[in-house]
Amino acid sequence: MALSKQITPATWLNRFMAWAKAAGYHVGEHPAYGGVTPGVHTRGSWHNDGLAADINKNGPRERAELVHAMTVAASFGLAVIFARDGVVGVARNHQGHLHVDVGEWSNYGDGNVRAARGDAKVWNLQGAVHLDGADRDNLYGPNTDKRLYALAASSTHGGGRHPYGVKFTQDVVGARTDGKWGGASRSAHDAAVADAQRALGVHDDGVWGSATDRAWRLVRKLYGR
């Protein structure tokens, strides 16, 4: 695939690579992950500029794991080359690994298509409820939804409840998990709410109210929750 214009900040590639590493994938052909193999990529390649990387994961579920990583990469707005749907064009050389970059074209095996445009909202919501490593995948799934529900429920607006236990809520807000919901936990809760509000695009006053609740429910609806 010829180099196209960059449409995604390198920060999102860095975040994806950090996720991939935490999820047990091998990240390579990038200056920060073992360097770029001489002769494999041309000197003008985005690999050498830190704007592309190769991802693989050996094992009996290799293909399924790579398809999942492709979905995560697309959620970050990254272009992907992988022979998921065939071997048209450059995809024929990417049957056992993903190529990811910050450009505008992907190829899933049946020709070039426009790369997905990433959305920082889920990534930032996952950060607000203290998901990290392999769990912070920029995909709004049941774990993310559960933690946001716990955050909402523990607010005054939500009735000050802890549907999964106090320790779980404390983990969500980044407080000490001692099972005692005191001043430190409430302060951590308000800070987590403010982070979530910034991700949702509402006033970040640290108070989960009706406006925050509506914005969150729109996100839930968007992702089929």
Results as ranks from 00 to 15, higher is better:
114 R>S: 13
156 T>I: 10
103 G>I: 02
116 A>K: 13
194 A>E: 04
113 V>D: 05
128 A>H: 03
103 G>F: 00
111 G>V: 12
89 G>E: 12
143 N>W: 02
180 K>F: 08
77 G>A: 05
85 D>V: 00
185 S>D: 10
90 V>C: 10
144 T>C: 02
143 N>Q: 15
98 L>R: 04
194 A>Y: 06
75 S>N: 14
150 A>I: 09
82 F>G: 10
136 R>K: 14
195 D>A: 15
134 A>W: 07
91 A>V: 06
131 L>D: 03
129 V>Y: 06
99 H>S: 01
179 G>N: 11
65 E>Y: 03
83 A>D: 01
96 G>R: 13
66 L>H: 09
96 G>F: 01
145 D>C: 10
104 E>R: 11
73 A>D: 03
153 A>T: 09
60 P>W: 09
122 V>E: 00
97 H>Y: 07
133 G>N: 09
193 V>K: 10
105 W>H: 14
100 V>Y: 10
77 G>V: 04
145 D>H: 15
132 D>M: 05
92 R>A: 15
145 D>L: 10
118 G>A: 00
189 H>R: 15
160 G>I: 09
147 R>I: 05
181 W>C: 13
190 D>I: 00
79 A>F: 02
68 H>V: 03
141 G>Q: 12
107 N>H: 02
163 P>T: 12
91 A>P: 08
139 L>S: 11
101 D>F: 03
88 V>P: 00
142 P>I: 05
72 V>I: 13
157 H>P: 06
123 W>F: 15
76 F>A: 08
194 A>G: 07
178 D>T: 10
72 V>L: 04
70 M>I: 01
66 L>E: 06
135 D>R: 15
172 V>M: 01
158 G>M: 06
127 G>D: 12
158 G>I: 03
91 A>K: 04
127 G>N: 14
152 A>N: 06
90 V>Q: 14
89 G>C: 11
100 V>I: 15
167 K>V: 11
128 A>Q: 02
147 R>T: 09
151 L>H: 13
154 S>W: 00
64 A>T: 11
74 A>Q: 15
84 R>G: 04
92 R>T: 14
161 R>Y: 00
119 D>N: 14
66 L>R: 09
100 V>K: 11
89 G>V: 11
133 G>W: 02
133 G>I: 05
144 T>P: 05
120 A>I: 12
196 A>G: 07
131 L>A: 06
73 A>C: 05
122 V>F: 04
95 Q>S: 12
99 H>Q: 01
111 G>R: 07
193 V>N: 11
158 G>E: 04
147 R>P: 04
156 T>C: 00
100 V>H: 10
70 M>G: 14
156 T>E: 14
128 A>P: 02
149 Y>V: 08
143 N>R: 15
84 R>N: 12
152 A>I: 01
87 V>G: 01
191 A>W: 01
114 R>C: 00
140 Y>S: 12
71 T>D: 14
82 F>P: 09
192 A>Y: 04
77 G>S: 02
66 L>S: 08
121 K>L: 11
189 H>F: 10
123 W>V: 08
160 G>K: 08
84 R>S: 12
182 G>I: 07
103 G>P: 04
77 G>C: 03
67 V>T: 13
155 S>T: 12
65 E>I: 00
123 W>G: 11
191 A>P: 05
123 W>A: 14
179 G>W: 02
110 D>T: 07
170 Q>D: 03
67 V>F: 03
179 G>T: 05
93 N>A: 12
101 D>Y: 04
192 A>R: 06
105 W>V: 13
78 L>V: 07
135 D>H: 13
64 A>C: 03
